[in-house]
Nucleic acid binder design. Structure first.
Lengths: 237, 237
DNA sequence: TAGATTGTTAATCGATTAACAATC
DNA sequence: TAGATTGTTAATCGATTAACAATC
């Protein structure tokens, strides 16, 4: 079944960066859709996202031909094409593990449902939470995970559990045959290569932001010496 | 004050990708700290994150010399050094705008506090929410934003507002002189260049995951033709 | 037709990896 | 000392940008 990973000559797998940008294009297309635009150029699509027009065209060309020379891209068509490419032209049932603050917020978050991601099963291993109802779903114990996931044909799981149980829960989820994990626990976890893992640590973007702000303020005040000389001069060995 | 953006010769600004990885190193260091390790090698630090040892050394070397040849990096020292680099060796007061499901979850999220990010002021423009208490803080109307932010020396704001009010709220926040914005609204917003913006759209990583899972399953079944021939053959013009 | 805009090639740029002398 | 591991250079690799013929 797995086999030799054939890689037919001439096929380049889509770079991770491209897939991320394609998601952004979809969001921008939806903005234009709401505004009633029929077509957009690559410049109009990339502009608000600070992405160059050549980049937009090259990214899209990766998946096929969607544009019309002299005209641009038809908003509705491109939007539908991107949904198909990303695999969100159909619903994805999801399992949510962990019903703390974050888990409950994720359960109610509208952004997932509007893209076809539906949470259909809840799990926790806290006895005080098991059996509780949220949005019409009953919290199941982790022991039931395998059976529920199999019968519900669930391929994706979101983990919103504490750091110290993240790896253990991940192992259980992998054992149940899940195909993809979205990990919200603020700790790195490891899974076997056939399972797809995406980590979402909410404090990382915040750290990035703090770094940027700190840096722009350093620039403004003592223009030049960033980080007290650490990298300000070329080190002479 | 702003001036000519001097760029002293010999100074390379840290690439965005490097800063992101440095945040990951910090998390992995904390794992080793909890396990009582005194030193780590670049291989040990990068391994669990699937980052090559050369990459780890190069990333860190960007900010200075932290390692000891033949020994590795001292866990405590490197951890402290990274905190200093990222600007999280001191507390950052934060304003949170929007107290829907996501906003309330962000308010209670432990991951921020443990990194020095403290939400100290809440805002909303829903009259039914203004005046409400959460975690000992009172929800203020947006009109009060400028005054509160100035008196509290708040430089960062988190936006957890609906898509259709995101840009308007961003404009207000910018006008109040905020230096950095973390945008959780699932829509692209634009801000002037002197304001730092980081967007966090929770459904993007989920889309990425769906794409990956879809792709590995395509590979498994009909090994070869991905996306029905779209890019399977080199197009001959 | 003239103007606009695509898909694609070639040129540039930056980021990752491998290798190794220097160091503990 | 021998073994380990750094910081750094050079080589590779991939990603971005500019430019332009083809197209509507």
């Amino acid at each position: 079944m797995k086999g030799s990973r054939p890689e037919p000559s001439g096929f380049k797998p889509a770079p991770k960066a491209v897939v991320g940008r394609v998601s952004l294009y979809l969001r921008q297309l939806e903005v234009y859709q709401r505004q009633g635009w029929a077509t957009v150029s690559s410049s109009q699509l990339g502009g608000p996202l600070s992405i160059k027009n050549a980049q937009v065209r090259k990214d899209l060309a990766f998946f096929g031909q969607f544009g019309h020379p002299g005209v641009g891209y038809r908003v509705d068509d491109l939007s539908a094409a991107i949904r198909h490419i990303l695999g969100i032209d159909h619903d994805w049932p999801l399992a949510l593990v962990g019903l703390g603050n974050l888990g409950r917020a994720l359960l109610k978050y509208r952004g997932f449902r509007s893209r076809g991601f539906h949470i259909v099963a809840l799990f926790d291993n806290d006895p005080t939470k098991i059996g509780g109802r949220h949005d019409g779903l009953v919290v199941e114990p982790m022991e039931a995970f395998g059976a529920v996931v199999t019968s519900g044909k669930i391929r994706l799981a979101m983990l919103a559990v504490p750091a110290d149980s993240a790896q253990r829960v991940a192992d259980q989820v992998v054992a149940a045959g899940i195909r993809g994990i979205l990990n919200f626990a603020p700790v790195p976890i490891t899974v076997p290569p056939q399972v797809n893992l995406v980590g979402v640590d909410l404090s990382i973007p915040l750290e990035n932001l703090a770094y940027k702000v700190q840096r722009t303020e350093d620039e403004d005040s003592c223009a030049g010496a960033i980080e007290r000389g650490a990298s300000a001069t070329d080190r002479v060995r």
